[in-house]
Amino acid sequence: MIAEAIRRGALADYAERFTTLYETAGSSVSIRELPFLAQLNLRVDAGDTAVMGQVTDYLGFSLPLTPNTASQAGDRRALWLGPDEWLIVGPDDQATSLEQALRGGLGGAVGSVVDVSANRTVLEIRGSKGHDLLAHGVPIDLDPGAFGPGCCAQTLLAKAQVIIERRDEAPAFQLYIRSSFASYVADWLLDAARAL
């Protein structure tokens, strides 16, 4: 018997339930998993302008220095996680190229680049009631006035640590959830969606 490696998203089993939600709630709220995104944790001294410049050159865009914001270029994005810490996100097949770019940018400077792609899966919550759904369990203000396009935040959703991001003007949030918490968060969201 030949062992076969099968890759499954952390929430592959929930696809049907997400579809059912879409069929009942329509365009007001929908949930889908965006599995297998390349995610890299970068730590580097933000005060070292030479290294930050190199990282910008290798990466193709500059890291956000304002807390709780994201920057992007094409299909790559960088989320602020801390004053010396970022999450670089790209498409599935770019984990290696992103890692090489970040290592090149870091050069010999003090810092680290870690592939954390398997650490989190991403849920996209889309629709006019997506904000209401998250407001059931998130302690921060997600109103567009306080949390507009390009904002991200690390917070708690129903006691589970999540990163929430609003990419653009569209009524959609990206939730970065720890893989081990993914089914709990998905169950919680589906339950909360019934109360909308």
């Binding site: 807390p67 709780n68 801390g82 004053p83 302690p139 921060i140 690390q154 917070t155 708690l156």
Partner: peptide, 10 residues
Amino acid sequence: PWCGDREDIE
């Protein structure tokens, strides 16, 4: 000091 006012549960 980085993220601003947040709930104490965080």
